[in-house]
Design a protein around this nucleic acid. Structure first.
Length: 423
RNA sequence: AGAGGAGUGGCAGAGUGGUCGAAUGCGGCGGUCUUGAAAACCGUUGUACCGCGAGGUACCGGGGGUUCGAAUCCCUCCUCCUCUGCCA
């Protein structure tokens, strides 16, 4: 959620930013917000004055009662009746105005960073780096959905039987490879200074609002209706919400957390023949890194995190590319996002395996996540996160790229975790 | 899940209808003393919003209510503790 005060102070900058996201009526939306906020201030001012008056009268009544001047007290009481009625009205309208303001603010996405290229769709994303020689497989090479059946390591049929489409069952070496990746990713993050967190995988409504999944995106999450909880779409939600409503100390920064969780996504509407096998699932495993930094450090941190993710992909010997998302492809809450895609040679496709984003103050404004600066002023912090990494697509790429007619090679760095060299 | 108890500032803990945003202690910050430190003493110490400012308003787990007036009374939800039950 953007900060109203900043919008009022620097309207044109915000309009410009929103236009990069191809939001046509940006100026109009922001003007509305500024106006609602003015109304809010006016209403609160009026309400405060009336409350002040009636507080004073109440004190008078108290004094008169003590002195035993009952009749005088009754007279003053009569005066308060009118004030009470008026303050009730004002309070109601203040609440209404606040709701209205929040509603509008929820509709406005984050302002893109100046380096974000303009554009409407993923076609306009900027390629920052791309592996030059993509692997060429023999004609007998298979896509991963055939490989997993051939080696009996992942079973979609079983998943269908016990749960439904998009919930595969990992078996034998498939399961062990998954576990190996989780451990490798976690250990590497810990070596790089991240503190491991095991959060709950269900969150309440408040957490959903704070990181931006709610309102609007409840259709993307599985909801536990009897308890009003949501299965998390990413570890970002519970981990970031750990710091909701807190004022961190300068010496606690930056916060660096890493967490492994399953992730649940409805993927409503995006199901179809183009997403076969492991390319898109309702439940998948992911290791997520989260950082909370002071505002002036967040862009250095973004680079650090992107470099980290890149090194992880490199260590697996996978061909990849790094993209800077354009305004139109940028997530709602993000100011800038780098996507990492690996090349899966069996299906000849790029698969997104990581998104590294800086949210600046967009999340912390909702989270009320702040710190005291050098002047002891309370300031909003910046949040960042990135996948490091999402497992199924990495798995798909490994299976396809590392296959030969008899087996599939396990990347060197994973072997001490798997305990086997090939499938 | 049932019965009972409880939720107050960074922490501990008073306060059961009226100058209570809240005693006191600890902690934090500033100072006196000291070569330095400790001790002692003095001062200070929550968050948000409105206002150019003086100042004002709100917040005692969340929401609602009673009252001229609520930390205090009522309703409701949440959380924690104790006992019983169940369970990995």
């Amino acid at each position: 959620m953007l900060q109203v005060q900043l919008i009022s102070e620097n309207r044109d900058h915000f309009v410009e930013g929103l236009l990069k996201r191809s939001i046509p009526n940006a100026a109009e939306l922001l003007n509305e917000i500024i106006e609602i906020d003015l109304n809010r201030k006016k209403t609160q001012n009026e309400l405060d004055q009336i409350l002040n008056e009636s507080n004073n009268l109440s004190k008078q009544i108290g004094g008169l009662m003590k002195e035993g001047k009952r009749e005088e007290a009754e007279l003053v009481k009569a005066k308060t009746a009118e004030l009470k009625e008026r303050s009730k009205q004002l309070n109601d309208s203040l609440n209404a105005i606040n709701d209205q303001l929040k509603d509008k603010l929820y509709q406005i996405p984050n302002i893109p960073h100046p380096s974000v290229p303009p554009g409407k769709s993923s076609d306009d994303n900027e390629t920052v780096f791309e592996t030059s020689d993509l692997p060429q497989l023999s004609d007998s090479a298979l896509p991963h959905w055939d490989l997993i059946t051939k080696y009996d390591i992942i079973d979609f049929e079983l998943g269908n039987k016990i749960t439904g489409a998009g919930f595969p069952v990992y078996k034998g070496k498939g399961a062990r490879l998954q576990r190996a990746m989780v451990n490798y990713f976690l250990d590497t993050a810990i070596e790089n200074g991240y503190v491991e967190i095991q959060p709950p995988i269900a969150v309440n409504e408040q957490s959903g609002y704070a990181t931006g999944q709610l309102p609007d995106k409840e259709g993307q999450m599985y909801q536990l209706t009897d308890t009003n909880l949501f299965l998390i779409p990413t570890a970002e939600v519970p981990i970031t919400n750990i710091y909701r409503d807190t004022i961190l100390k300068s010496e606690d920064l930056p916060v660096k957390n890493v967490g492994f969780t399953p992730c649940f996504r409805r993927e409503a509407g995006s199901w179809g023949s183009h997403v076969r096998g492991l390319n898109r699932l309702h439940q998948f495993d992911k290791v997520e890194i989260v950082q909370i930094t002071k505002p002036d450090k967040s862009y250095a941190t973004l680079d650090e995190m992107a470099d980290y993710v890149e090194s992880l992909i490199k260590s697996l010997n996978l061909p990849y590319r790094k993209l800077r998302l354009c305004g139109g492809d940028l997530g709602f809450t993000s100011a800038i996002t780098y996507d990492f895609e690996v090349y899966s040679a069996g299906q000849k496709k790029w698969l997104e395996v990581s998104s590294v984003s800086n949210f600046e103050t967009y999340q912390t404004n909702r989270l009320k996540l702040r710190y005291k600066d050098e002047n002891k002023k309370t300031q909003l912090l910046h949040t960042l996160n990135g996948s490091a990494l999402a497992l199924p697509r990495i798995l798909a790429a490994i299976l396809e790229n590392n296959q030969n007619d008899q087996s599939i090679d396990i990347p060197e760095v994973l072997r001490k975790y798997t305990g086997f060299d090939s499938i």
